[in-house]
Amino acid sequence: MKPMLITPLALSILLGACADLGTNVDPILDGEPNAQFQSDLAACRTLARNQSQLDRETMASAAIGAGIGGVLGEVDDDGDALGGALAGALAGAVAGGAEASERREAIVLNCLRGRGHAVVG
């Protein structure tokens, strides 16, 4: 397979595997959950899942990673710019996906707080 086809395929698989990351957080409550808690948790997780993993920040991280990787690949005696750019794009996308996952977790926790649950973490 050509490197130009491997990168988008690998990125798609990676982001697909991360689809639920950040949404399956088990919140820590200060006290016992009330009767509405499970319903609210499900609704907040759905809200977080609707936030795209492939957002502007993730794409920007991939682009920056590609630029840095390309430069480093060109400078390296044994490397090449295309290989470096591909590796950098994947690394940047992974970093951006991790940030998106953290945002999703924060959405779940803040959503529960907004619904009146005593979430501490």
Rank of each mutant, 00 (worst) to 15 (best):
T7C: 09
L90T: 05
G69A: 11
A17F: 07
V120N: 06
I6P: 04
R113D: 01
E74S: 09
L112R: 00
L15D: 03
A95H: 10
V108D: 07
L9N: 04
D76I: 12
P27Y: 02
R49W: 05
A98D: 07
A81W: 13
E57M: 09
G97V: 00
E74Y: 13
A17R: 09
L82P: 08
G92C: 01
D30V: 05
A98V: 14
E105F: 09
K2Q: 09
D30G: 04
L41F: 01
A43T: 01
S52M: 12
F37N: 02
V94Y: 07
C111K: 08
A118D: 13
V108F: 13
A81L: 15
E32N: 01
N50E: 02
V25N: 04
L112C: 00
E105C: 10
N24M: 12
A118C: 12
D77V: 15
I68P: 14
M4Y: 11
N34A: 08
R115F: 12
A118E: 10
G31P: 00
T23V: 14
E32G: 02
P3Q: 12
V71S: 08
V108A: 06
A19Y: 13
A66E: 08
D30S: 00
M4Q: 10
G65F: 07
P3G: 10
L72S: 05
L72N: 05
G79K: 02
A106I: 03
M4L: 14
D40H: 01
Q36K: 03
L90N: 12
I107N: 02
G84P: 07
A17I: 02
D20I: 14
V120A: 03
G83N: 13
L29C: 02
G121W: 05
G16P: 00
E102M: 13
A91H: 06
V94A: 15
A66Q: 08
L21Q: 11
L15F: 14
M59E: 03
A98C: 12
N34I: 00
I64L: 06
I6V: 15
N24C: 15
S12V: 07
D55Y: 02
L109G: 03
Q53F: 10
L15K: 06
L9G: 06
A85H: 11
G65I: 00
L15R: 10
A100I: 07
L109E: 11
I64P: 08
G96N: 01
A81E: 06
S101E: 04
A66F: 08
M59F: 15
D80S: 15
G31E: 09
L15C: 06
A91W: 01
L21N: 15
C111A: 13
L112K: 07
L21Y: 14
L86E: 07
E102A: 15
G70Q: 08
V75M: 14
K2Y: 11
G31V: 10
T58I: 03
M59P: 09
I68N: 09
G22M: 14
G16C: 09
A60F: 00
A100N: 03
A19E: 12
F37Q: 02
E105Y: 00
L109Y: 10
A89M: 06
P3S: 15
A17N: 02
P33F: 03
T23I: 08
G79D: 06
V119S: 01
T7Q: 14
R113I: 08
P3H: 10
G31Y: 01
P33S: 05
L82K: 15
L15S: 15
G84I: 07
A89N: 08
P27K: 00
L11S: 04
L109N: 06
D78V: 10
G97W: 06
S101F: 05
